[in-house]
Design a binder for these strands. Sequence first.
DNA 1: CTATTTGCAAACACTTTGCACAGCA
DNA 2: TGCTGTGCAAAGTGTTTGCAAATAG
Lengths: 136, 136
Amino acid sequence: MKVIIMSRQERGKRDRVLQELLSRTDHPTAEELYLALREKGEDISLATVYRALRSLAEEGLVATLPLAPADRFDPLTHPHYHFHCHRCNQVLDLDLPYKPELDQAIEDLGFSVHHHTLVFHGLCPACQPKEELWRK
Amino acid sequence: MKVIIMSRQERGKRDRVLQELLSRTDHPTAEELYLALREKGEDISLATVYRALRSLAEEGLVATLPLAPADRFDPLTHPHYHFHCHRCNQVLDLDLPYKPELDQAIEDLGFSVHHHTLVFHGLCPACQPKEELWRK
DNA sequence: CTATTTGCAAACACTTTGCACAGCA
DNA sequence: TGCTGTGCAAAGTGTTTGCAAATAG
């Protein structure tokens, strides 16, 4: 009989998903997380990854970035902004301080603001030269 | 033989879709537009509505709001911000001036910014009292 | 007569769900 | 025992596409 004492974060697939997400900064999709976990030998199904992410998002442990064609997930729960490169389709965290005064302006209009999402669209530094090349 | 001289906006289903979208301020989904057009006696298919919206968006005549579960469409092409009420699920235009200085801050980080999208999330004025009632 | 637009149904991509079963309390 | 978590496959939802027929130029 084999006995394995599990540390807290090894209980349940949900925590494996969270662990994997926490280890990266590239805002993966559900499927990317699924493939990464499989790659690492984890025996998990795509349905479970979806279930885990939904549950984690509902508890506020991860943030969902509703992007087409597939949602991306962010382990950073404190409010921050994103850049979406329309060439490499990558999402990057931005080092721009959250601006609560924007919320205030909307509150003044009679809304009750929970938070705001700010996404910049364009070309990331790496893709700008490639784009110029492409146009020639 | 019946001859009908068509005015410009009556040519093609694409223009019917644009016309319908221009007539409203509630950021409808593709299906909502489809149903509205059918309601008005227009003989159109859902596929055509999707094709029309895609083509219009590519030409910059309408803006796409990528929201879950379905994209919403905005006839206002000049940049402006939105409020998404998480109770009635409505999207409202906000009367807050577009802030190009936000783009500048990101350009300074080495990105090439095309535009940014800013969505506030919370309760719209109409839904705040309802929400309080619900909590009791 | 050729090019474009359309409707229909099928295909598609992403996500959720029903169900049976495994593991744990 | 019963509760929770899981895999699998099927269903669900929003969107796109292949194709043949209709229409425009």
